[in-house]
Amino acid sequence: MNELLNVEHLSISFHTYNGEVQAVRDASFRLGRGEVLAVVGESGSGKSVMMQTILKLTPCELKSGTITFDGKDITNYTDNQMQEIRGSQIGIIFQDAMTSLNPTMKIGRQITESLLRHQKMSRAGAKEQALELLRQVGINNPEKRFHQYIHNLSGGMRQRVMIAIALACKPKMLIADEPTTALDVTIQAQIMDLLAKLREEVGCSIVLITHDLGVVAANADRIAVMYAGRVVESGTSDQIFYHSAHPYTRGLLESIPRLDAPHDARLTYIGGTPPDALNPAPGCAFSARCKYAMRLCRMQAPEAREVQPGHFCSCFLLDDAARATREKTGWEVSL
């Protein structure tokens, strides 16, 4: 077992006044050492909830499944045990740096906090280290910034500070939850370059949560596509981009406007709207929006099958028994 993180059959639920929301349903994925895994999906598909619940940062109920991190089963870790891992072995970058950093604490203290807590460093040593980190993430004049508050910084700079905090203890895994969604394309490119550079220096694995397939194409080794709480397809970047086997993945790829597309073309799109998480329909969650849906799809949820080594997809269309439907609808799987 060389995986750093191994999640199997994970199901997570929220309890709301309106009933139970099944945020994640039977999700399985792996993260290899030094690898970048992108978790892709629309808003509400459960990608953030899944990663945050793995770190026990949400009050959600973990209904079933196992989580193995670095060879240890952390599924039933207590809050105290998790605290030892969070910040030291797992770093996290949130989407909105403005609300996830503390506005009343100086930048320097926010970075040294985890160094003091986890690495038992002296104050002077921690300060030295924090300045080095600020320099590493490309912040000019770190001595000055060390004593400033986050309102003195721009969006891109705040995101850099978040990265510095997340990497302070040289974690084995970094979770980047939409790290560039709030930023302009030019700043986004800078931040993604920085993450790639730091990944080589620190040697950590990265889970990149995003809905932007463009960002994914440039940075991910492997991709897991989520829809309505399920991982519907996962595989290497090339497998997903060039040989996607799930109708949702393909729809998603086709609906992005591309720079090299002819000017008069219409965007293809996925009709309908994402399903209601409160009353999930039986069967495949995507069946209501799927052009190729068969009767079986509306009755039963498909199991994941390995279509190529390392490429998993949950779709009945891949079954030999669905050949007639594939021919009728023109759905082709090129593996």
Partner: peptide, 19 residues
């Protein structure tokens, strides 16, 4: 040059210009 293109092969070949 900063626009991410959803195609891994294209991305690998691009030369990025940064500010």
């Amino acid at each position: 040059s900063a626009i991410p293109i959803p195609d891994p092969d294209v991305q690998k070949k691009r030369s990025a210009i940064r500010f």
